[in-house]
Measured scan of single mutants.
Amino acid sequence: EAHAAIDTFTKYLDIDEDFATVLVEEGFSTLEELAYVPMKELLEIEGLDEPTVEALRERAKNALATIAQ
């Protein structure tokens, strides 16, 4: 499951495998979680700032909209 989540994140969020791995290690496994989890939870991840989190959430929401079509 972790590998599938990493693949999904790299494909749809335009991030590298290392960043995707950090997200999975922090407990995220779906685009929905990244799109809708409280921003505070993402900001608790070391190295993430508000602009990065906002961009990540926007990419996740856009990916979900694209997949739904």
Results as ranks from 00 to 15, higher is better:
residue 2 A to V: 11
residue 2 A to P: 09
residue 3 H to R: 15
residue 3 H to W: 13
residue 3 H to P: 07
residue 3 H to G: 10
residue 4 A to E: 08
residue 4 A to I: 11
residue 5 A to Q: 06
residue 5 A to H: 05
residue 6 I to M: 06
residue 8 T to F: 10
residue 9 F to C: 02
residue 9 F to T: 00
residue 10 T to N: 03
residue 10 T to P: 00
residue 10 T to E: 03
residue 12 Y to V: 05
residue 12 Y to W: 15
residue 12 Y to D: 02
residue 14 D to R: 08
residue 14 D to H: 13
residue 14 D to M: 14
residue 14 D to A: 13
residue 16 D to K: 07
residue 16 D to L: 06
residue 16 D to Y: 04
residue 17 E to T: 09
residue 18 D to W: 14
residue 18 D to F: 12
residue 18 D to S: 13
residue 19 F to S: 04
residue 20 A to E: 00
residue 21 T to K: 15
residue 21 T to L: 13
residue 21 T to H: 10
residue 22 V to A: 10
residue 22 V to E: 04
residue 22 V to H: 10
residue 22 V to K: 15
residue 22 V to Q: 12
residue 22 V to P: 00
residue 23 L to Q: 00
residue 23 L to K: 01
residue 23 L to Y: 01
residue 23 L to D: 00
residue 24 V to H: 06
residue 25 E to D: 10
residue 25 E to R: 15
residue 25 E to H: 14
residue 26 E to Y: 15
residue 26 E to T: 14
residue 26 E to Q: 15
residue 27 G to F: 03
residue 27 G to S: 02
residue 28 F to R: 01
residue 28 F to G: 00
residue 28 F to Y: 13
residue 28 F to E: 00
residue 29 S to A: 09
residue 29 S to P: 02
residue 29 S to V: 10
residue 30 T to N: 06
residue 30 T to E: 03
residue 30 T to D: 04
residue 31 L to W: 02
residue 31 L to D: 00
residue 32 E to Q: 10
residue 34 L to S: 00
residue 36 Y to I: 09
residue 36 Y to Q: 09
residue 36 Y to P: 01
residue 37 V to E: 06
residue 37 V to Q: 09
residue 37 V to L: 11
residue 37 V to R: 15
residue 38 P to V: 06
residue 38 P to Q: 08
residue 39 M to Y: 07
residue 40 K to E: 12
residue 41 E to Q: 14
residue 41 E to L: 14
residue 42 L to S: 03
residue 44 E to C: 08
residue 44 E to F: 10
residue 45 I to P: 02
residue 45 I to K: 04
residue 45 I to C: 03
residue 46 E to T: 15
residue 47 G to V: 05
residue 47 G to R: 07
residue 48 L to R: 02
residue 49 D to A: 04
residue 49 D to E: 06
residue 49 D to T: 08
residue 51 P to E: 13
residue 51 P to V: 13
residue 52 T to I: 09
residue 52 T to M: 12
residue 52 T to W: 08
residue 52 T to P: 01
residue 53 V to L: 10
residue 53 V to W: 14
residue 54 E to Y: 08
residue 54 E to W: 08
residue 54 E to V: 15
residue 55 A to F: 09
residue 55 A to L: 14
residue 56 L to V: 04
residue 56 L to G: 00
residue 56 L to N: 00
residue 57 R to F: 03
residue 57 R to D: 00
residue 58 E to C: 12
residue 59 R to V: 04
residue 59 R to C: 05
residue 60 A to L: 05
residue 61 K to C: 05
residue 62 N to Q: 14
residue 62 N to G: 09
residue 62 N to K: 15
residue 63 A to G: 05
residue 63 A to E: 03
residue 64 L to T: 02
residue 65 A to C: 08
residue 66 T to K: 11
residue 67 I to A: 06
residue 68 A to I: 09
residue 68 A to G: 10
residue 68 A to F: 06
residue 69 Q to F: 03
